[in-house]
Nucleic acid binder design. Structure first.
Lengths: 230, 230
DNA sequence: ATAGATATCTAACGTATGATAGATATTCAG
DNA sequence: CTGAATATCTATCATACGTTAGATATCTAT
Protein backbone atom coordinates (compact mmCIF):
# COMPACT_ATOMS: atom_id res chain seq x y z
CA UNK A 1 0.00 0.00 0.00
CA UNK A 2 2.49 2.59 -1.14
CA UNK A 3 1.59 6.21 -0.61
CA UNK A 4 0.30 8.00 -3.69
CA UNK A 5 2.97 10.01 -5.43
CA UNK A 6 0.61 12.75 -6.49
CA UNK A 7 1.37 16.01 -4.75
CA UNK A 8 -1.64 17.29 -2.87
CA UNK A 9 -2.38 20.67 -1.38
CA UNK A 10 -1.27 20.78 2.24
CA UNK A 11 -3.83 20.06 4.94
CA UNK A 12 -5.68 23.00 6.39
CA UNK A 13 -3.49 22.80 9.46
CA UNK A 14 -0.33 23.53 7.47
CA UNK A 15 0.11 26.97 6.07
CA UNK A 16 0.41 27.28 2.29
CA UNK A 17 2.63 29.67 0.42
CA UNK A 18 1.29 33.08 -0.47
CA UNK A 19 1.31 32.87 -4.26
CA UNK A 20 -0.75 29.70 -4.23
CA UNK A 21 -3.92 31.57 -3.35
CA UNK A 22 -3.67 33.67 -6.51
CA UNK A 23 -3.54 30.50 -8.59
CA UNK A 24 -6.61 29.13 -6.84
CA UNK A 25 -8.46 32.36 -7.57
CA UNK A 26 -7.44 32.33 -11.22
CA UNK A 27 -8.61 28.75 -11.65
CA UNK A 28 -11.93 29.41 -9.93
CA UNK A 29 -12.59 32.48 -12.03
CA UNK A 30 -11.88 30.57 -15.23
CA UNK A 31 -13.95 27.62 -14.03
CA UNK A 32 -16.90 29.80 -13.08
CA UNK A 33 -16.98 31.20 -16.57
CA UNK A 34 -16.61 27.79 -18.21
CA UNK A 35 -19.14 26.00 -16.00
CA UNK A 36 -21.58 28.86 -16.29
CA UNK A 37 -21.28 29.11 -20.03
CA UNK A 38 -21.12 25.42 -20.99
CA UNK A 39 -22.24 23.43 -17.98
CA UNK A 40 -20.30 20.94 -15.90
CA UNK A 41 -20.07 18.17 -18.47
CA UNK A 42 -19.23 20.30 -21.48
CA UNK A 43 -16.60 22.40 -19.76
CA UNK A 44 -13.19 20.74 -20.01
CA UNK A 45 -10.46 20.93 -17.44
CA UNK A 46 -7.95 21.73 -20.16
CA UNK A 47 -9.90 24.77 -21.30
CA UNK A 48 -10.19 25.93 -17.72
CA UNK A 49 -6.48 25.45 -17.05
CA UNK A 50 -5.56 27.31 -20.21
CA UNK A 51 -7.93 30.17 -19.44
CA UNK A 52 -6.45 30.38 -15.96
CA UNK A 53 -2.93 30.37 -17.36
CA UNK A 54 -1.82 27.25 -15.51
CA UNK A 55 -0.97 23.68 -16.43
CA UNK A 56 -3.60 20.96 -16.22
CA UNK A 57 -2.46 19.20 -13.02
CA UNK A 58 -2.75 22.42 -11.06
CA UNK A 59 -6.47 21.71 -10.87
CA UNK A 60 -5.94 18.31 -9.31
CA UNK A 61 -3.40 19.75 -6.94
CA UNK A 62 -5.67 22.49 -5.63
CA UNK A 63 -9.12 20.93 -5.89
CA UNK A 64 -8.60 17.18 -6.07
CA UNK A 65 -10.60 16.70 -9.23
CA UNK A 66 -13.10 18.35 -11.55
CA UNK A 67 -15.95 17.91 -9.14
CA UNK A 68 -13.94 19.39 -6.31
CA UNK A 69 -13.38 22.44 -8.49
CA UNK A 70 -17.10 22.61 -9.17
CA UNK A 71 -17.85 22.60 -5.46
CA UNK A 72 -15.24 25.26 -4.83
CA UNK A 73 -16.97 27.38 -7.47
CA UNK A 74 -20.29 27.04 -5.66
CA UNK A 75 -18.70 28.20 -2.44
CA UNK A 76 -17.02 31.11 -4.22
CA UNK A 77 -20.34 32.18 -5.72
CA UNK A 78 -21.99 32.25 -2.34
CA UNK A 79 -19.18 34.42 -1.02
CA UNK A 80 -19.38 36.81 -3.98
CA UNK A 81 -23.16 37.12 -3.80
CA UNK A 82 -22.95 37.90 -0.14
CA UNK A 83 -20.45 40.63 -0.91
CA UNK A 84 -22.68 42.10 -3.62
CA UNK A 85 -26.18 41.81 -2.24
CA UNK A 86 -26.03 40.97 1.44
CA UNK A 87 -26.15 44.60 2.50
CA UNK A 88 -29.54 45.27 0.96
CA UNK A 89 -31.00 41.92 2.03
CA UNK A 90 -29.77 42.44 5.56
CA UNK A 91 -31.17 45.95 5.70
CA UNK A 92 -34.54 44.76 4.44
CA UNK A 93 -34.52 41.89 6.91
CA UNK A 94 -33.89 44.23 9.82
CA UNK A 95 -36.50 46.69 8.61
CA UNK A 96 -39.07 43.91 8.36
CA UNK A 97 -38.72 43.08 12.02
CA UNK A 98 -40.41 46.37 12.77
CA UNK A 99 -43.49 45.50 10.68
CA UNK A 100 -43.16 48.52 8.37
CA UNK A 101 -46.05 49.94 6.32
CA UNK A 102 -46.72 48.41 2.88
CA UNK A 103 -45.16 51.34 1.04
CA UNK A 104 -41.81 50.69 2.71
CA UNK A 105 -42.03 46.99 1.89
CA UNK A 106 -42.82 47.59 -1.76
CA UNK A 107 -39.91 50.01 -1.96
CA UNK A 108 -37.54 47.37 -0.60
CA UNK A 109 -38.98 44.75 -2.91
CA UNK A 110 -38.52 47.04 -5.89
CA UNK A 111 -34.93 47.75 -4.96
CA UNK A 112 -34.03 44.15 -4.34
CA UNK A 113 -35.51 42.98 -7.62
CA UNK A 114 -33.73 45.75 -9.50
CA UNK A 115 -30.46 44.81 -7.87
CA UNK A 116 -31.06 41.18 -8.76
CA UNK A 117 -31.79 42.07 -12.36
CA UNK A 118 -28.47 43.85 -12.62
CA UNK A 119 -26.69 40.98 -10.89
CA UNK A 120 -28.20 38.55 -13.37
CA UNK A 121 -27.93 40.47 -16.55
CA UNK A 122 -25.34 43.16 -16.35
CA UNK A 123 -21.67 42.33 -16.21
CA UNK A 124 -20.15 39.23 -17.66
CA UNK A 125 -18.66 37.73 -14.51
CA UNK A 126 -21.86 38.09 -12.53
CA UNK A 127 -23.78 36.62 -15.45
CA UNK A 128 -21.59 33.53 -15.41
CA UNK A 129 -22.25 33.15 -11.72
CA UNK A 130 -25.98 33.38 -12.20
CA UNK A 131 -25.73 30.91 -15.07
CA UNK A 132 -23.88 28.54 -12.80
CA UNK A 133 -26.58 28.84 -10.15
CA UNK A 134 -29.37 28.38 -12.66
CA UNK A 135 -27.73 25.25 -14.06
CA UNK A 136 -27.17 23.72 -10.67
CA UNK A 137 -30.82 24.36 -9.87
CA UNK A 138 -31.64 21.64 -12.32
CA UNK A 139 -28.66 19.32 -12.15
CA UNK A 140 -28.89 18.60 -8.42
CA UNK A 141 -25.22 17.82 -8.06
CA UNK A 142 -23.33 18.13 -4.79
CA UNK A 143 -23.19 21.87 -5.33
CA UNK A 144 -26.97 22.06 -5.25
CA UNK A 145 -27.31 21.90 -1.49
CA UNK A 146 -24.69 24.61 -0.95
CA UNK A 147 -26.47 26.99 -3.28
CA UNK A 148 -29.89 26.06 -2.00
CA UNK A 149 -29.06 26.53 1.65
CA UNK A 150 -27.06 29.71 1.27
CA UNK A 151 -28.70 31.47 -1.68
CA UNK A 152 -32.13 30.22 -2.61
CA UNK A 153 -33.60 29.61 0.81
CA UNK A 154 -32.64 32.93 2.37
CA UNK A 155 -33.24 34.85 -0.87
CA UNK A 156 -36.74 33.52 -1.38
CA UNK A 157 -37.60 33.92 2.29
CA UNK A 158 -36.71 37.60 2.42
CA UNK A 159 -38.58 38.18 -0.82
CA UNK A 160 -41.61 36.33 0.53
CA UNK A 161 -41.56 38.40 3.69
CA UNK A 162 -41.56 41.54 1.57
CA UNK A 163 -44.43 40.23 -0.53
CA UNK A 164 -46.41 39.60 2.63
CA UNK A 165 -45.44 43.01 3.96
CA UNK A 166 -46.64 44.67 0.76
CA UNK A 167 -50.08 43.35 1.57
CA UNK A 168 -49.98 44.48 5.16
CA UNK A 169 -49.29 41.04 6.60
CA UNK A 170 -46.43 40.15 8.87
CA UNK A 171 -46.68 36.36 8.74
CA UNK A 172 -45.37 34.64 5.63
CA UNK A 173 -47.63 32.14 3.90
CA UNK A 174 -46.82 29.57 1.24
CA UNK A 175 -48.64 31.72 -1.28
CA UNK A 176 -46.12 34.48 -0.60
CA UNK A 177 -43.26 32.05 -1.11
CA UNK A 178 -44.76 30.92 -4.40
CA UNK A 179 -45.01 34.52 -5.56
CA UNK A 180 -41.47 35.21 -4.41
CA UNK A 181 -40.23 32.25 -6.41
CA UNK A 182 -42.06 33.51 -9.45
CA UNK A 183 -40.70 37.03 -9.06
CA UNK A 184 -37.11 35.83 -8.85
CA UNK A 185 -37.65 33.37 -11.66
CA UNK A 186 -39.14 36.05 -13.88
CA UNK A 187 -35.82 37.88 -13.75
CA UNK A 188 -33.96 34.80 -14.92
CA UNK A 189 -35.50 35.48 -18.32
CA UNK A 190 -32.77 38.07 -18.72
CA UNK A 191 -29.94 35.80 -17.67
CA UNK A 192 -30.65 32.24 -18.72
CA UNK A 193 -32.73 33.54 -21.60
CA UNK A 194 -30.82 36.68 -22.37
CA UNK A 195 -30.58 35.95 -26.08
CA UNK A 196 -34.26 35.16 -26.42
CA UNK A 197 -35.21 38.26 -24.48
CA UNK A 198 -32.97 40.58 -26.46
CA UNK A 199 -34.13 39.16 -29.76
CA UNK A 200 -37.78 39.57 -28.76
CA UNK A 201 -37.27 43.11 -27.58
CA UNK A 202 -35.31 43.87 -30.74
CA UNK A 203 -32.22 45.03 -28.88
CA UNK A 204 -28.63 44.20 -29.68
CA UNK A 205 -27.48 44.35 -26.09
CA UNK A 206 -28.73 45.07 -22.64
CA UNK A 207 -28.06 48.81 -22.57
CA UNK A 208 -29.34 51.52 -20.27
CA UNK A 209 -32.62 52.12 -22.08
CA UNK A 210 -33.39 48.40 -22.08
CA UNK A 211 -32.64 48.28 -18.38
CA UNK A 212 -35.10 51.17 -17.91
CA UNK A 213 -37.73 49.19 -19.75
CA UNK A 214 -37.22 46.20 -17.47
CA UNK A 215 -37.13 48.34 -14.35
CA UNK A 216 -40.53 49.64 -15.38
CA UNK A 217 -41.85 46.10 -15.74
CA UNK A 218 -40.54 45.26 -12.28
CA UNK A 219 -42.18 48.35 -10.81
CA UNK A 220 -45.53 47.45 -12.33
CA UNK A 221 -45.33 43.90 -10.99
CA UNK A 222 -44.55 45.13 -7.49
CA UNK A 223 -47.33 47.65 -7.75
CA UNK A 224 -49.69 44.87 -8.76
CA UNK A 225 -48.83 43.09 -5.55
CA UNK A 226 -49.09 46.03 -3.18
CA UNK A 227 -52.24 47.56 -4.66
CA UNK A 228 -54.29 44.44 -4.05
CA UNK A 229 -57.63 44.70 -2.33
CA UNK A 230 -57.09 43.60 1.23
CA UNK B 1 -13.71 8.92 -53.88
CA UNK B 2 -15.31 5.66 -52.96
CA UNK B 3 -18.86 5.86 -51.75
CA UNK B 4 -19.25 5.59 -48.02
CA UNK B 5 -20.29 2.15 -46.92
CA UNK B 6 -22.39 3.37 -44.03
CA UNK B 7 -26.06 2.66 -44.56
CA UNK B 8 -28.07 5.85 -44.49
CA UNK B 9 -31.79 6.40 -44.20
CA UNK B 10 -33.37 6.60 -47.64
CA UNK B 11 -33.91 9.98 -49.21
CA UNK B 12 -37.23 11.66 -48.65
CA UNK B 13 -38.25 10.70 -52.14
CA UNK B 14 -37.97 6.99 -51.39
CA UNK B 15 -40.53 5.45 -49.10
CA UNK B 16 -39.22 3.85 -45.90
CA UNK B 17 -40.56 0.71 -44.34
CA UNK B 18 -43.37 0.95 -41.83
CA UNK B 19 -41.59 -0.29 -38.71
CA UNK B 20 -38.78 2.20 -39.12
CA UNK B 21 -40.95 5.08 -37.96
CA UNK B 22 -41.56 3.38 -34.61
CA UNK B 23 -37.80 3.15 -34.06
CA UNK B 24 -37.37 6.82 -34.86
CA UNK B 25 -40.06 7.68 -32.33
CA UNK B 26 -38.51 5.50 -29.65
CA UNK B 27 -35.11 7.09 -30.15
CA UNK B 28 -36.52 10.61 -30.08
CA UNK B 29 -38.48 9.93 -26.92
CA UNK B 30 -35.40 8.55 -25.20
CA UNK B 31 -33.26 11.40 -26.48
CA UNK B 32 -35.73 14.05 -25.34
CA UNK B 33 -35.58 12.66 -21.84
CA UNK B 34 -31.80 12.38 -21.84
CA UNK B 35 -31.12 15.79 -23.40
CA UNK B 36 -33.71 17.42 -21.15
CA UNK B 37 -32.38 15.82 -18.01
CA UNK B 38 -28.64 16.03 -18.61
CA UNK B 39 -28.07 18.45 -21.45
CA UNK B 40 -26.58 17.84 -24.88
CA UNK B 41 -23.00 17.26 -23.80
CA UNK B 42 -23.70 15.06 -20.79
CA UNK B 43 -26.25 12.85 -22.53
CA UNK B 44 -24.50 9.95 -24.26
CA UNK B 45 -25.65 8.26 -27.42
CA UNK B 46 -25.16 4.87 -25.79
CA UNK B 47 -27.54 5.70 -22.95
CA UNK B 48 -30.08 6.97 -25.44
CA UNK B 49 -29.80 3.89 -27.63
CA UNK B 50 -30.19 1.60 -24.63
CA UNK B 51 -33.19 3.52 -23.31
CA UNK B 52 -34.76 3.32 -26.74
CA UNK B 53 -34.07 -0.40 -26.94
CA UNK B 54 -31.96 -0.21 -30.10
CA UNK B 55 -28.30 -0.66 -30.96
CA UNK B 56 -26.00 2.34 -31.09
CA UNK B 57 -25.66 2.73 -34.88
CA UNK B 58 -29.41 3.09 -35.25
CA UNK B 59 -28.94 6.72 -34.22
CA UNK B 60 -26.46 7.41 -37.00
CA UNK B 61 -28.68 5.61 -39.45
CA UNK B 62 -31.78 7.63 -38.68
CA UNK B 63 -30.36 11.00 -37.69
CA UNK B 64 -26.84 11.16 -39.13
CA UNK B 65 -25.17 11.98 -35.82
CA UNK B 66 -25.79 13.17 -32.29
CA UNK B 67 -26.47 16.71 -33.39
CA UNK B 68 -28.92 15.55 -36.01
CA UNK B 69 -30.79 13.73 -33.28
CA UNK B 70 -30.76 16.89 -31.21
CA UNK B 71 -32.29 18.87 -34.05
CA UNK B 72 -34.91 16.18 -34.63
CA UNK B 73 -35.82 16.48 -30.96
CA UNK B 74 -36.33 20.22 -31.30
CA UNK B 75 -38.66 19.67 -34.23
CA UNK B 76 -40.54 16.97 -32.32
CA UNK B 77 -41.00 19.31 -29.37
CA UNK B 78 -42.46 22.00 -31.59
CA UNK B 79 -44.91 19.49 -33.02
CA UNK B 80 -45.93 18.21 -29.58
CA UNK B 81 -46.38 21.69 -28.16
CA UNK B 82 -48.55 22.64 -31.06
CA UNK B 83 -50.68 19.60 -30.42
CA UNK B 84 -51.01 20.44 -26.74
CA UNK B 85 -51.38 24.18 -26.66
CA UNK B 86 -52.08 25.50 -30.13
CA UNK B 87 -55.85 25.34 -29.69
CA UNK B 88 -55.91 27.82 -26.82
CA UNK B 89 -53.30 30.12 -28.35
CA UNK B 90 -55.16 30.13 -31.65
CA UNK B 91 -58.45 30.87 -29.96
CA UNK B 92 -56.94 33.73 -28.00
CA UNK B 93 -55.30 35.08 -31.13
CA UNK B 94 -58.58 35.10 -33.01
CA UNK B 95 -60.42 36.66 -30.09
CA UNK B 96 -57.81 39.41 -29.84
CA UNK B 97 -58.50 40.52 -33.40
CA UNK B 98 -61.88 41.76 -32.19
CA UNK B 99 -60.31 44.02 -29.53
CA UNK B 100 -62.13 42.38 -26.63
CA UNK B 101 -62.68 44.07 -23.24
CA UNK B 102 -59.95 43.74 -20.61
CA UNK B 103 -61.86 41.14 -18.61
CA UNK B 104 -61.86 38.78 -21.58
CA UNK B 105 -58.14 39.33 -22.12
CA UNK B 106 -57.28 38.66 -18.51
CA UNK B 107 -59.37 35.50 -18.62
CA UNK B 108 -57.42 34.26 -21.63
CA UNK B 109 -54.13 35.23 -20.03
CA UNK B 110 -55.04 33.36 -16.88
CA UNK B 111 -55.99 30.27 -18.83
CA UNK B 112 -52.88 30.29 -20.99
CA UNK B 113 -50.55 30.68 -18.03
CA UNK B 114 -52.31 27.91 -16.14
CA UNK B 115 -52.02 25.65 -19.15
CA UNK B 116 -48.36 26.52 -19.47
CA UNK B 117 -47.76 25.75 -15.81
CA UNK B 118 -49.21 22.30 -16.26
CA UNK B 119 -47.21 21.78 -19.44
CA UNK B 120 -44.03 22.74 -17.60
CA UNK B 121 -44.51 21.03 -14.33
CA UNK B 122 -46.98 18.24 -14.53
CA UNK B 123 -46.12 15.05 -16.35
CA UNK B 124 -42.65 13.71 -16.79
CA UNK B 125 -42.49 13.69 -20.59
CA UNK B 126 -43.70 17.27 -20.89
CA UNK B 127 -41.24 18.29 -18.21
CA UNK B 128 -38.36 16.86 -20.22
CA UNK B 129 -39.51 18.82 -23.22
CA UNK B 130 -39.63 22.04 -21.26
CA UNK B 131 -36.21 21.26 -19.82
CA UNK B 132 -34.90 20.78 -23.33
CA UNK B 133 -36.31 24.12 -24.39
CA UNK B 134 -34.98 25.90 -21.33
CA UNK B 135 -31.50 24.48 -21.92
CA UNK B 136 -31.46 25.43 -25.56
CA UNK B 137 -32.46 28.95 -24.57
CA UNK B 138 -29.00 29.36 -23.16
CA UNK B 139 -26.85 27.10 -25.30
CA UNK B 140 -27.72 28.70 -28.63
CA UNK B 141 -27.05 25.59 -30.64
CA UNK B 142 -28.56 24.92 -34.04
CA UNK B 143 -31.79 23.93 -32.32
CA UNK B 144 -32.11 27.40 -30.83
CA UNK B 145 -33.46 29.05 -33.95
CA UNK B 146 -36.10 26.35 -34.45
CA UNK B 147 -37.38 26.75 -30.91
CA UNK B 148 -37.14 30.51 -31.01
CA UNK B 149 -39.01 30.92 -34.26
CA UNK B 150 -41.71 28.40 -33.58
CA UNK B 151 -42.18 28.55 -29.82
CA UNK B 152 -40.74 31.60 -28.12
CA UNK B 153 -41.55 34.27 -30.67
CA UNK B 154 -45.23 33.33 -31.20
CA UNK B 155 -45.72 32.41 -27.53
CA UNK B 156 -44.37 35.67 -26.19
CA UNK B 157 -46.21 37.68 -28.83
CA UNK B 158 -49.64 36.28 -27.99
CA UNK B 159 -48.91 36.75 -24.28
CA UNK B 160 -47.82 40.32 -24.90
CA UNK B 161 -51.00 41.04 -26.87
CA UNK B 162 -53.02 39.74 -23.95
CA UNK B 163 -51.03 41.86 -21.51
CA UNK B 164 -51.77 44.92 -23.65
CA UNK B 165 -55.41 43.88 -23.95
CA UNK B 166 -55.69 43.58 -20.17
CA UNK B 167 -54.86 47.26 -19.97
CA UNK B 168 -57.33 48.24 -22.67
CA UNK B 169 -54.74 48.73 -25.40
CA UNK B 170 -54.73 47.03 -28.75
CA UNK B 171 -51.22 47.87 -29.88
CA UNK B 172 -48.37 45.89 -28.35
CA UNK B 173 -45.43 47.80 -26.88
CA UNK B 174 -41.99 46.56 -25.85
CA UNK B 175 -43.03 46.97 -22.24
CA UNK B 176 -45.77 44.41 -22.84
CA UNK B 177 -43.28 42.03 -24.37
CA UNK B 178 -40.97 42.44 -21.41
CA UNK B 179 -43.81 41.62 -19.04
CA UNK B 180 -44.84 38.66 -21.18
CA UNK B 181 -41.28 37.33 -21.00
CA UNK B 182 -41.28 37.72 -17.26
CA UNK B 183 -44.64 35.99 -16.88
CA UNK B 184 -43.55 32.98 -18.88
CA UNK B 185 -40.17 32.90 -17.19
CA UNK B 186 -41.80 33.01 -13.77
CA UNK B 187 -43.47 29.70 -14.53
CA UNK B 188 -40.12 28.12 -15.36
CA UNK B 189 -39.44 28.20 -11.63
CA UNK B 190 -41.60 25.11 -11.45
CA UNK B 191 -39.85 23.30 -14.27
CA UNK B 192 -36.17 24.20 -14.34
CA UNK B 193 -36.28 24.86 -10.63
CA UNK B 194 -38.83 22.28 -9.61
CA UNK B 195 -36.67 20.87 -6.83
CA UNK B 196 -35.90 24.26 -5.36
CA UNK B 197 -39.56 25.27 -5.54
CA UNK B 198 -40.86 22.12 -3.92
CA UNK B 199 -38.29 22.25 -1.17
CA UNK B 200 -39.13 25.88 -0.44
CA UNK B 201 -42.85 25.22 -0.40
CA UNK B 202 -42.25 22.17 1.79
CA UNK B 203 -43.99 19.78 -0.59
CA UNK B 204 -42.81 16.35 -1.61
CA UNK B 205 -44.34 16.54 -5.07
CA UNK B 206 -46.39 18.78 -7.22
CA UNK B 207 -49.85 17.53 -6.25
CA UNK B 208 -53.28 19.04 -6.72
CA UNK B 209 -53.18 21.32 -3.68
CA UNK B 210 -49.79 22.67 -4.69
CA UNK B 211 -51.12 23.32 -8.17
CA UNK B 212 -54.01 25.21 -6.59
CA UNK B 213 -51.54 27.34 -4.69
CA UNK B 214 -49.67 28.21 -7.87
CA UNK B 215 -52.87 28.86 -9.79
CA UNK B 216 -53.74 31.38 -7.12
CA UNK B 217 -50.38 33.09 -7.55
CA UNK B 218 -50.94 33.27 -11.31
CA UNK B 219 -54.39 34.75 -10.79
CA UNK B 220 -53.04 37.44 -8.51
CA UNK B 221 -50.31 38.35 -10.99
CA UNK B 222 -52.79 38.64 -13.82
CA UNK B 223 -55.09 40.67 -11.63
CA UNK B 224 -52.21 42.98 -10.81
CA UNK B 225 -51.80 43.62 -14.52
CA UNK B 226 -55.44 44.20 -15.39
CA UNK B 227 -56.32 46.31 -12.34
CA UNK B 228 -53.75 48.96 -13.16
CA UNK B 229 -54.76 52.61 -13.21
CA UNK B 230 -55.15 53.57 -16.83
C1' DA C 1 -41.34 -16.77 -53.84
C1' DT C 2 -37.71 -13.85 -54.38
C1' DA C 3 -34.65 -10.18 -55.08
C1' DG C 4 -33.47 -5.70 -54.16
C1' DA C 5 -34.15 -2.10 -50.93
C1' DT C 6 -34.26 -0.99 -46.18
C1' DA C 7 -33.18 -1.47 -41.40
C1' DT C 8 -30.52 -3.16 -37.58
C1' DC C 9 -26.75 -5.36 -35.59
C1' DT C 10 -21.74 -6.70 -33.69
C1' DA C 11 -17.28 -5.06 -33.59
C1' DA C 12 -13.84 -1.85 -33.91
C1' DC C 13 -11.44 2.88 -34.53
C1' DG C 14 -9.77 7.47 -33.47
C1' DT C 15 -9.97 10.96 -30.35
C1' DA C 16 -10.64 13.98 -26.40
C1' DT C 17 -11.02 13.88 -21.62
C1' DG C 18 -10.06 13.38 -16.59
C1' DA C 19 -6.67 11.54 -13.96
C1' DT C 20 -1.92 10.31 -12.66
C1' DA C 21 3.29 9.71 -12.34
C1' DG C 22 7.19 11.67 -11.46
C1' DA C 23 10.58 15.48 -12.37
C1' DT C 24 11.46 20.31 -11.59
C1' DA C 25 10.87 24.88 -9.91
C1' DT C 26 9.58 28.01 -6.23
C1' DT C 27 8.91 29.61 -1.54
C1' DC C 28 10.28 30.79 2.97
C1' DA C 29 11.52 29.39 8.02
C1' DG C 30 15.78 28.74 10.48
C1' DC D 1 22.09 30.60 2.76
C1' DT D 2 20.08 26.45 2.75
C1' DG D 3 17.02 22.74 2.61
C1' DA D 4 12.61 20.87 3.52
C1' DA D 5 7.94 21.99 2.30
C1' DT D 6 5.11 23.57 -1.20
C1' DA D 7 3.69 24.43 -5.86
C1' DT D 8 3.85 23.74 -10.78
C1' DC D 9 5.27 21.47 -14.78
C1' DT D 10 5.88 17.85 -18.94
C1' DA D 11 4.52 13.51 -20.35
C1' DT D 12 1.63 9.61 -20.14
C1' DC D 13 -2.30 6.52 -19.05
C1' DA D 14 -6.92 4.49 -19.08
C1' DT D 15 -11.30 5.22 -20.37
C1' DA D 16 -15.59 6.66 -22.45
C1' DC D 17 -17.40 8.77 -26.23
C1' DG D 18 -19.01 9.69 -31.11
C1' DT D 19 -18.39 7.64 -35.20
C1' DT D 20 -17.65 4.16 -38.80
C1' DA D 21 -17.06 -0.50 -41.20
C1' DG D 22 -19.15 -4.14 -42.77
C1' DA D 23 -22.10 -8.27 -41.96
C1' DT D 24 -26.78 -9.75 -41.19
C1' DA D 25 -31.66 -9.54 -40.72
C1' DT D 26 -36.10 -7.76 -42.23
C1' DC D 27 -39.39 -5.91 -45.24
C1' DT D 28 -42.25 -5.35 -49.40
C1' DA D 29 -43.05 -4.66 -54.53
C1' DT D 30 -43.22 -7.71 -58.15
Amino acid sequence: MAETMIPVAPAASRQGYAKSEATREAIITAALSAFGRHGFAAATTRQIAEAAGVALPAIAYHFGNKEGLHLACARAIVARYYAQAADLALEAGLALDAAPPPEVCSDYLRHILRRLLRLFAQDEAAGSQADFVAREMRDRGPAFQILYDQLWAPGVEITARLVAGCQGRKTVQDADRAEALMLISSLLAFNTGRDVALQILGRARLDATTLDLLDGAIDRMVEGISKRPR
